[in-house]
Design a protein around this nucleic acid. Structure first.
Length: 486
RNA sequence: GGCGCUAUCGUCUAGGGGUUAGGACGGAAGAUUCUCAAUCUUCAAACCCGGGUUCGAUUCCCGGUAGCGCUACCA
């Protein structure tokens, strides 16, 4: 039975690296008919927050992939302690009465290799019991085999066979002095208990895995098999540093992508392409295509850069250009009705009144012009607003023309449009004929009208725009432009 | 400092003992259109360095360098 798990710790918002780990696990489970377990690794009471739990669930729900089983580590403490106690009884772990390190251990150089606190490893059981009974606080540490030339090894589906000398592994903690299990213990105990068969997680755990193998071997019943590990290359910032909330802020939060108007399908597609490849030339892929193509063999070993611009000068700088492009691709692939339905609430929440029918008519005009769903607000603003925002009358002047030409065009348009049926072909014929009468090129005729009704030079095709706007609004806006041009 | 992992265009990647080192995004130029966008075409752009092994290495091995990770009673 194939079982995978995603085990975030609720100490911050769901970030894109975690989301990718979730997605890879999900893909692997679905691809192979396995079970997806969601487990909240919340043993760090100090740093857990309810807001983080909310953020994680918000993010995961938006991904819309789902999961099969759900657990909370904090509700499984008895299991963790029981496993720790068994290891202690077997002599595989020992009590360490050394007071906890205050602050950070210096990693920056001078420090020597730390393996265990002197004196504690070989403390006689009787003395250990006496001090524990006296109420002296202690951490429980794993007794790593030492001086025996032993090796710890495990196969990794991505990085291959991993081997490390046990002598290089420190006596890590299993239980804190407050009795809470550490991540290593809780994670392994639960992985065993939940019968997790494949552990797919970030590469930052690759070196930790030796400790986990030690725990698995110590805690598992004889004959039990180790889960298969698959470590994922990390997602890093353009400067190569690990993506972090602290350094990079909301650009790494899943909800930032959601709120900016990413389609979750596009976001998933983008994340899959960081550190994994279908090995053919496909880039734009649906959820189903990703599921069919996903395999551990396609996972890369080098870290992947999420290519956002560090000091963001435009809102788009927050996102990798490829993510933006993929989102545009997915938007264009969406049926108009679906896209329209997604756009409607965004327009409404911006304070505009639009009927679903009108939105449906607008959608095809803008769907090739937006990268993010939010862009609907700037791409189609003139459809929503009653009153056009003010614009420079000079905008009305066509190519190779002057203010007089603009005015001439607008006055002629006012006349012609008043007696034209607002269908694509009728508008086409009427306006082209008008251009010819005035001795102008089509573009010179269209541009002043476009600016008059849209308030700017760059907009969707004119005839479709006029149709959606309707005769009344069109004529009103042209009239206003005539006043302006005078 | 110790231990480990990694290294192909700016970015994501394919590939692999002999290739014009392929694709995508982004960039540049052009076509097309009523503007913008979309679309199409073209172009520029990469095998970290040094030693081996070999007839031949970007590919295999070793070393270096760089980056990253772990080295907490965080996860």
């Amino acid at each position: 039975m194939l079982r995978v798990r995603f085990a975030p710790s609720p100490t911050g918002f769901l970030h894109v690296g975690s989301a990718r780990t979730f997605i890879f696990n999900w893909l692997y489970a679905r691809r192979n008919g396995g079970t997806m377990v969601l487990r909240l690794d919340d043993t760090d009471v100090e740093r857990n927050t309810e807001a983080s739990v909310t953020s994680i669930f918000d993010g995961l729900r938006w991904l819309d992939l789902g999961w099969d089983e759900e657990y909370k580590q904090s509700e499984r403490l008895a299991l963790h302690r029981q496993i720790a106690d068994a290891m202690f009884q077997k002599g595989l772990a020992y009590r360490d009465f050394t007071p906890a390190h205050t602050g950070d251990s210096d990693k920056s150089g001078a420090g020597q290799t730390w393996l265990f606190n002197p004196g504690m490893r070989e403390l006689p059981r009787a003395e250990s019991d006496r001090r524990a009974d006296a109420g002296e606080p202690f951490a429980l540490r794993f007794r790593v085999p030492r001086g025996l030339g032993e090796q710890v090894r495990f196969p990794d589906a991505v990085y291959g066979e991993q081997i490390k000398a046990a002598d290089d592994i420190e006596d890590f903690a299993l239980l804190r002095s407050d009795g809470m299990p550490t991540y290593h213990l809780a994670s392994c105990a639960d992985d065993i208990d939940l019968r997790i068969s494949h552990i797919i997680r970030g590469q930052d755990h690759l070196s930790n895995t030796y400790k986990h193998v030690l725990i698995f071997k110590a805690a598992q019943s004889a004959g039990a098999v180790l889960p298969l590990f698959a470590h994922l290359p990390l997602l890093v910032a353009p400067d190569g540093s690990k993506l972090s909330k602290r350094r990079h802020g909301p650009v790494v939060s899943v909800t930032t992508y959601r709120d900016a108007g990413f389609l979750s399908a596009a976001f998933i597609n983008f994340l899959c392409l960081l550190g994994w490849s279908p090995k053919d030339d496909r880039t734009c892929m649906t959820r189903q295509e990703l599921m069919d193509a996903f395999s551990l063999e396609g996972i890369n070993r080098a870290n992947a850069v999420v290519n956002f611009k560090e000091p963001a000068t435009t809102p788009e700088d927050t996102f990798d250009p490829k993510a933006l492009w993929l989102n545009a691709e997915h938007i264009r692939a969406l049926p108009v009705a679906d896209l329209s339905a997604q756009l409607l609430p965004i327009v409404h929440s911006a304070g505009f009144q639009v009927t679903p029918e009108k939105m449906l008519a607008i959608t095809p005009l803008i769907r090739e012009r937006i990268k993010l769903l939010r862009d609907v607000l700037t791409a189609a603003d003139f459809f929503f607003a009653d009153q056009l925002p003010p614009f420079d009358p000079a905008e009305l002047i066509p190519q190779k023309g002057d203010a007089a030409m603009a005015l001439k065009v607008l006055m002629r348009a006012r006349e012609v449009l008043a007696q034209t049926e607002f269908t694509h072909d009728a508008l086409d014929h009427a306006l082209r004929a008008a251009a010819q009468e005035l001795g102008l090129k089509a573009g010179q005729m269209f541009q002043p009208i476009r600016v008059a009704v849209c308030g700017r030079k760059n907009a969707p095709p004119l005839f479709e725009t006029l149709q959606v706007l309707g005769k009344e609004t069109t004529l009103t806006r042209i009239e206003q432009a005539v006043q302006k041009a005078n």
